[in-house]
Design a protein around this nucleic acid. Structure first.
Lengths: 138, 138
DNA sequence: ATACAACTTCAAGTCAACTTGAGGTCAAGC
DNA sequence: GCTTGACCTCAAGTTGACTTGAAGTTGTAT
């Protein structure tokens, strides 16, 4: 496939695909003349990238997930990413419930509502360990 | 509390807190001399912000959630944010499972593994409708 | 054969979200 | 009463993730 087709099928603009290739998140399998040709499995990779981005992961983190990282796969890293996702999922779930509650809570300043607070309390439950990227309440 | 205390308790640097105030994501309740004073409930707001950011929401989107938006609360908006979160949670769950599978899948190129692909297929299941921010497979 | 739409590179531009720095103010402890 | 450290403002700088533009090349349809 050429870049235009990948663009159409993935939803990413061609410029982004070139950018991703430069950043080594995807690979073109060759050239036909000047033009890149892509193997169709690039679409799956792009799906993972889209997923990861929407989850708030940086391109670098996503690249890490793809990384063969030496001769051995870094299962440990994958698992720890999975755990990270797990925590994020719990937080998002709490936040979702908080929003749903807020949406039909009579309190005027709905972010001050006690139910919402409680839910948040659960979400932000002290998860500090060394240097964490995202700030947490103490 | 002064800004230093908020910084310490929230994990956000003071510079970020000033920035957030400027962007009207948080409010200082007054000044003591030059110095901002914050009400302790700013900590909850900051927790929501941290949560939202980690979920990949922009500051603007988060601000929208806080917005009283006229005399009436925009429940509709909150609910639609909740739904958005719900979709995101499903995607993240799929990705988490994918990662866990990949971590102990014998396949060499683990992102090419069929189980993982299937899981992804579910995650990215056509959710297009008008202009969506995040690219999707067709 | 010619046109032209779709590709190419490379440099520069943009935007969000912060951070840093210079230069200044102030409250509290010695 | 003076030093000092934590605060202040405002402008400019940084980073990640792209996008845009200029200038050139090429596959494909007429």
């Amino acid at each position: 496939m050429d870049i235009g087709e990948v663009a159409k099928r993935s939803g990413f603009p061609a410029s982004t695909l070139r950018y991703y290739e430069e950043k080594e998140l995807i690979r073109s399998t060759g050239r036909s003349g000047l033009r890149r040709t892509f193997d169709s499995d690039v679409l799956e990779r792009l799906a993972v990238i889209a997923l990861g981005r929407s989850a708030g992961f940086s391109l670098e983190e996503i690249a890490d997930m793809f990384a063969p990282n030496g001769p051995k796969i870094n299962r440990q890293q994958l698992l720890s990413k999975a755990d990270e996702l797990d925590r994020k999922i719990k937080q998002l779930t709490a936040m979702r419930e908080g929003l749903r509650h807020a949406a039909n809570c009579p309190a005027p300043g709905h972010f001050e509502c006690s139910t919402f607070k409680r839910v948040l309390g659960l979400a932000v439950k002290r998860q500090r360990s060394g240097k964490n990227k995202t700030p947490t309440l103490s």
